[in-house]
Nucleic acid binder design. Structure first.
Lengths: 105, 105
DNA sequence: TAAACTGGTAACCGATTGGTTACCTATCAA
DNA sequence: TTGATAGGTAACCAATCGGTTACCAGTTTA
């Protein structure tokens, strides 16, 4: 079961995985420390870490008997790039909302 | 089956749903026009539109016998907001990469 | 060396997902 | 008024998901 290319959008669609990434912003963590933060079993966390690893959102390094996971935010640029095309629409849709509300008066 | 609050991250995790949103940037479309663009059945598109609607990413308006779907990009702000905290890390992780490459020389 | 700790993985489970076909209602056009 | 068009939804299906427990291999420590 190798490291296959996995969609970053999918990796990030799970709330627990996002929370793991959020945690790793504070610095690398071993698995058991990450697992302590969530109300799920350690194997469940291992699975999430695998998905994040396959999406290249984390890297790992063995250190003694523990395995440190590091945040790698680079793939999030793809999400950002996709969002980019929508930013110009936000002001427009707010204008539409304003017009809609004014029509109601 | 009402319009329940649905996670925008989940709504956007599917490639077909993202493509639908991309299409709606060009303007509102009736369902059959959207369905023409994808190699899946119309009911499948209806389901995707329902998910997008539940996530408030589209609005709909009946017009004759067709139902027009409009893009509403507002909920994407939540994704953008989450990403915001990672933007500052991108330059850092690029610096790490640079240092890593230099170490290899 | 034996016991404890760290963490991956296999096997399994129920829920959800994305797809289908079949069927229905509503609207428009001939 | 009849036939065609638009589109929602139910029922079903296989695949995937997120979770579990059980088990295993390394590594550290007493």
């Amino acid at each position: 079961m190798g490291t296959q290319q996995v969609d970053v959008f999918h990796a990030v669609s799970d709330v627990t995985r996002r929370a793991i990434l959020d945690r790793l912003r504070q610095g690398a963590q071993p698995v058991h420390e990450i697992a302590r933060l969530f109300p799920v079993s350690r194997p469940a966390i291992s699975k999430h870490l695998r998905v994040l690893h396959e999406a290249q959102l984390v890297t790992e390094r063995k250190q003694g008997r523990q395995r440190l996971y590091y945040l790698n935010p680079e793939p999030l640029r793809d999400v950002d790039k996709w969002l980019e095309t929508y930013r110009s629409f936000w002001s427009v849709s707010l204008a539409n909302l304003k017009r809609h509300l004014e029509r109601k008066q």
